[in-house]
Design a protein around this nucleic acid. Structure first.
Length: 604
RNA sequence: GCUCCAGUAGCUCAGUGGAUAGAGCAUUGGUUUCCUAAACCAAGUGUCGCAGGUUCGAGUCCUGCCUGGAGCGCCA
């Protein structure tokens, strides 16, 4: 009697606590009942005393294994008994339940629960039917907004230096970063999208000088253009514009002037390219500002004050050969950061012997500033080639007695554009070249495919897998692309709404109990979006959303075929219910497509 | 040489320590008087790189090896 009352109390509490998640509700109820059964068995001496671990009840992949399952074999060590006997003991002590009519034990120790009498199905249907209107009215409330409530997040991504167009590699970074930002927003965070770029280093000087020479060429000067300068045609175009605007008026200007022009022009281009795939940064943070504010020198001073800096013509712990090498190169003393203190394999130069800092110092200063801005989460999307650099920055932050934990780096593995060789059938990398028909910029990709295709394909793989972006697949097989498969689900809903309006048919007074199991299956799957977002955010895995979107579309399309709305054989009541269902489905797809940064066309 | 990532169907890739490893593409056959067929239905496909180990249970965790990629500068 006591146990029955305990069950009831617990059931009530759980229903109140986990109403937004029906699966969790059922699993928690049954898990609670299993725990009660275990306690009962322990108090009657059937099982030895041990603390009952938190082993979740789950839903089996295969329906033949029941509606729910409990892996009793995980108790075998604690109970020092055969898993099958433990399962049997639980079975014999289970309280009555509206969810469970039958139990079955299957080796190596699964206790499977069946709900044959339909109680479970009935309750499930009632709850799912209720969700349809909730989804239509306010799908937001089904998202895990509590995760980032009152929290600030930053995503730093792209961060390509303004020395040329956005390449395929940058594109992957951009798509992953922006999707991460959108997911963080869906989890309730206030998100800032930041772009950090190095415009103080040698790269930009070379860019300025490259443009200067191109300009002089435009004026007709015979100039030998060095191999290690920027070769791209785009600088020739900029130079031509300058020549048109200024004639030879800039002949005596120095590289600095040209650098500024090039930087401005490149950024305009980069932003235009990113805007084409619906990506926009809130903030651009440049390296130069760290010099102007003298922040980098203050950081260096702080490192020095903490005892992590030394001056030497070679690193501490260098072997004889390395020392000899530095002597041979006649290095003057440089300023070193003793990063080995924090686990680095070797110390790093902060300021070169010529007095110029390496990239590392401003990087540390930048991240120091970032931490001080107080973000709860700061995601940094970087190419895998920055692996060591990112580690050194974290060592630097520790040396400054800062906690680098809010910073999380998503490393993006290499991406290359490939196409199939017609003769050999092998995939071949497309060379980085500007020849017609070759793809190596974001602009090219968008022009040949579409913004949506680029976003989907770049997102739909784990960031730490190398990616071969198969141009032929994306371009030629456009009609059988997952991109359109997903979007078509939304388009089909829109088509129904158009037709319904034309016919003057609406869903007023719809009785959703007339919906079939397939529609409710879709609703049930939709409710998993919250879990997907939570998982994507907490594990920094934005690609999860792309796979979820495809799974959802795969459930949707068969329903569209079966569950017609405006069809002569469909009774009006059922049609109303279905129309209401498709309104919910449209909301779900709209939400997911926007989370991926894709468009939501009404027609295709 | 050291560090990191990857190796899963013909191809491109998913895969919270759970039961019979999944999608898409490609291949084969079928489906449309009525919301657009970029769809639906049906069919086949595996030494999860190799070898050990931990575990009641390993594609998943640990160790070693093989293969591919990236990083290891007073480069940016």
């Amino acid at each position: 009697m006591e146990i029955e009352r305990e069950t009831r109390k617990r059931l009530d509490k759980i229903i109140n606590d986990s109403l937004p998640d029906f699966d969790a509700l059922c699993r928690n109820v049954i898990q609670g009942q299993v725990e009660i059964a275990l306690k009962k068995a322990q108090s009657s001496g059937k099982l030895p005393e041990f603390e009952i671990p938190d082993i979740p009840v789950s839903i089996p992949k295969l329906p033949v294994h029941g509606d729910f399952t409990y892996p009793a074999m995980r108790l075998s060590r604690l109970a020092k008994k055969n898993p099958l006997i433990i399962a049997e003991t639980i079975k014999n002590n289970m309280p009555r339940s509206v969810f469970v009519d039958e139990m079955e034990i299957i080796p190596p120790g699964f206790l499977n629960f069946f709900s044959d009498s339909g109680h479970f199905a009935e309750l499930e249907k009632r709850i799912l039917v209720g969700w349809v209107d909730v989804i239509i009215d306010d799908f937001e409330q089904l998202l895990p907004l509590y995760i980032g409530e009152d929290k600030q997040a930053q995503v730093e991504f792209v961060s390509a230096n303004p020395s040329g167009p956005i390449t395929i590699g940058h594109t992957r970074n951009a798509v992953v970063g922006d999707a991460m930002a959108r997911l963080l927003e869906a989890a309730g965070y206030t998100v800032q999208r930041e772009y950090y770029y190095n415009n103080a280093g040698n790269q930009m000087i070379v860019l300025g000088k490259s443009l200067m020479l191109r300009y002089l060429q435009q004026l007709g000067d015979a100039i030998d253009f060095p191999d290690d300068y920027y070769q791209g045609d785009y600088l020739v175009e900029v130079a031509a514009d300058l020549a048109r605007q200024h004639g030879d008026g800039l002949r005596d200007s120095d590289w600095q002037r040209f650098k500024d022009v090039a930087e401005t022009r490149m950024f305009a281009w980069i932003n235009r390219s990113l805007a084409a795939i619906d990506i926009k940064h809130d903030d651009f943070y440049n390296e130069t500002s760290l010099f102007e504010s003298r922040k980098i020198w203050r950081v260096l001073d702080a490192l020095r004050a903490n005892g992590h800096i030394y001056e030497s013509s070679h690193r501490e712990g260098a072997d004889a050969a390395e020392v000899a090498d530095t002597k041979e190169k006649a290095y003057q003393p440089a300023t070193w950061f003793r990063s080995t203190t924090f686990g680095d394999e070797k110390d790093r130069v902060m300021v070169k012997s010529d007095g110029a800092p390496t990239y590392t110092l401003p990087d540390i200063a930048y991240h120091c500033d970032k931490l001080k801005r107080g973000f709860d989460v700061a995601v940094n999307v970087l190419g895998a080639d920055h692996f060591s650099q990112a580690a050194v920055v974290k060592y630097g932050l520790r040396a400054l007695k800062l906690n680098p934990d809010p910073i999380h780096v998503i490393f993006i593995q290499m991406v290359r554009a490939v196409r199939r060789n017609k003769e050999s059938g092998e995939h071949e990398a497309i060379k980085q070249s500007k020849r017609a028909g070759d793809f190596d910029t974001l602009d090219d990709l968008v022009a040949m495919t579409s913004a949506d295709a680029v976003r989907y394909h770049m997102l739909a793989r784990s960031p730490n897998s190398q990616l071969d972006f198969d141009v032929d697949q994306v371009v030629k097989q456009t009609n059988e692309n997952p991109v359109y498969y997903i979007q078509n689900a939304y388009v089909r809903c829109a088509g129904i709404f158009r037709e319904a309006e034309e016919r003057g048919f609406d869903d007023d007074g719809a009785d959703l109990n007339l919906l079939d199991a397939v529609e409710l299956k879709f609703i049930r799957k939709s409710l998993e979006l919250g879990n997907v977002i939570e998982q994507a955010v907490t594990n920094y895995e934005p690609h999860k959303i792309a796979f979820f979107a495809h799974e959802l579309a795969a459930i949707f399309h068969p329903i569209y075929d079966q569950a017609r709305v405006l069809h002569s054989e469909v009774p009006p009541g059922v049609a109303k219910a279905r129309l209401r269902f498709y309104r919910a489905a449209a909301v779900v797809f709209h939400r997911i497509l926007r989370l991926m940064g894709m468009t939501t066309p009404e027609r295709m």
